Amino acid sequence: MAPNAAGTRRRDPHRRERIVAAAVAVIGEVGLAGFTHRAVAARADVPLGSTTYYFADLDELLDAAVRTVAEENVQRLRDWALALPDDADLSSELARFAVRLVTKHREATVLAYELYGAALRRPALRAASTAWDTMLTEVFQSRFDPVTARALTALFDGLLYQALVSPRTPRRAELEPVLRRLLV
C-alpha cells in the first residue's frame, strides 16, 4: 500500500480477505503446485510480507482458502436444498444439481475437489474439506434414514468426481437412474 500525501500508510481493513480470495484464485488457476506466497501476493496486489503477516505459513493460508471454498460450496448446497419442494423427485433433482455443479459451477467444483484431495496429505485441512460431506449428509438425512444419507453422499461425491474427470459433460438422464437405484 502506497503512502498517502502525509507519508503514512492508508489502512487496508480488507487485506486479509483479499489475500484469501487471491489464494483461492491462484489455486483455481494453477493448482496447488503453483500455490506460493509470492503468487498469492502478486494476485492480491499486496507486498509479499503481507501474506506472512496474516498467515504464519503456507499451510495456514491454504487452510483459509479451503475454508472459503467449503463455505461457498456449502452455501450453494443449502440454497439448492431450501429451494426443493417437499415432494421433489430427489433422484431427478440431484442429477440436475450435479450437472449444474460440473457445468455452471465447474471451476468452483474442480477447486473444491482439488482442495479435498490435498487434505489426504495435510491433516490440518481435513475439517474444512469435509464440511461439504457433512452438509450434504445433513440435507439427505432430512429426507432419508442416516445410512441411506451417508450412502447417497458417497454416491453423489463419486458421481461428481467422475463427471469432472470425464472428457464429456454428463447428462441428467445418465445420472438420474444411478441415483434412483440407491433411493428406490
Rank of each mutant, 00 (worst) to 15 (best):
residue 7 G to C: 08
residue 137 T to N: 07
residue 92 S to W: 12
residue 24 V to C: 02
residue 182 L to T: 05
residue 71 E to N: 06
residue 169 T to I: 08
residue 95 A to I: 14
residue 29 E to M: 05
residue 2 A to W: 08
residue 79 D to E: 10
residue 22 A to Y: 02
residue 83 A to W: 01
residue 8 T to Q: 11
residue 103 T to E: 07
residue 5 A to R: 10
residue 112 A to I: 00
residue 108 A to H: 08
residue 124 A to Y: 07
residue 66 V to S: 01
residue 167 P to E: 03
residue 169 T to W: 00
residue 120 L to H: 09
residue 136 L to H: 15
residue 164 L to F: 09
residue 132 W to N: 08
residue 157 D to A: 13
residue 183 L to A: 04
residue 89 D to W: 07
residue 3 P to L: 13
residue 39 A to D: 05
residue 171 R to E: 14
residue 103 T to V: 08
residue 178 V to H: 04
residue 9 R to H: 06
residue 97 F to L: 12
residue 76 R to Q: 09
residue 33 A to W: 00
residue 39 A to Y: 03
residue 81 A to I: 00
residue 45 D to Y: 08
residue 111 L to V: 05
residue 152 L to D: 04
residue 181 R to H: 06
residue 112 A to N: 05
residue 54 Y to K: 01
residue 144 F to Y: 13
residue 66 V to L: 05
residue 59 D to I: 04
residue 47 P to I: 11
residue 77 L to Q: 02
residue 125 L to D: 06
residue 81 A to H: 08
residue 102 V to C: 08
residue 162 Q to E: 12
residue 104 K to C: 12
residue 65 A to N: 03
residue 126 R to Q: 11
residue 126 R to N: 06
residue 57 D to Y: 05
residue 52 T to F: 00
residue 84 L to S: 01
residue 67 R to Q: 10
residue 63 D to E: 12
residue 78 R to W: 08
residue 9 R to W: 04
residue 132 W to L: 15
residue 5 A to V: 13
residue 134 T to M: 12
residue 128 A to Q: 15
residue 131 A to M: 15
residue 43 R to K: 14
residue 40 V to T: 05
residue 70 A to S: 14
residue 110 V to D: 13
residue 156 F to K: 05
residue 123 P to H: 09
residue 26 V to L: 04
residue 172 R to I: 12
residue 80 W to Q: 01
residue 35 F to C: 00
residue 27 I to F: 03
residue 164 L to G: 04
residue 86 D to I: 11
residue 158 G to E: 07
residue 55 F to V: 01
residue 49 G to M: 07
residue 42 A to R: 15
residue 165 V to L: 14
residue 22 A to W: 02
residue 101 L to Q: 12
residue 158 G to Q: 07
residue 129 S to G: 10
residue 158 G to P: 05
residue 144 F to D: 02
residue 124 A to N: 11
residue 66 V to H: 00
residue 115 L to D: 00
residue 22 A to F: 01
residue 96 R to Y: 09
residue 89 D to R: 11
residue 121 R to N: 13
residue 90 L to G: 09
residue 23 A to C: 05
residue 112 A to F: 03
residue 110 V to G: 03
residue 4 N to A: 10
residue 5 A to C: 05
residue 139 V to M: 10
residue 143 R to V: 06
residue 88 A to R: 07
residue 1 M to V: 14
residue 64 A to V: 03
residue 33 A to Y: 00
residue 109 T to P: 02
residue 144 F to I: 08
residue 36 T to R: 02
residue 56 A to P: 02
residue 136 L to I: 11
residue 12 D to M: 07
residue 136 L to F: 14
residue 18 R to P: 02
residue 30 V to D: 01
residue 73 N to C: 11
residue 81 A to T: 01
residue 90 L to A: 13
residue 37 H to W: 08
residue 47 P to V: 15
residue 113 Y to P: 00
residue 99 V to A: 12
residue 55 F to Y: 08
residue 113 Y to C: 04
residue 162 Q to T: 13
residue 154 A to D: 07
residue 98 A to H: 14
residue 120 L to E: 12
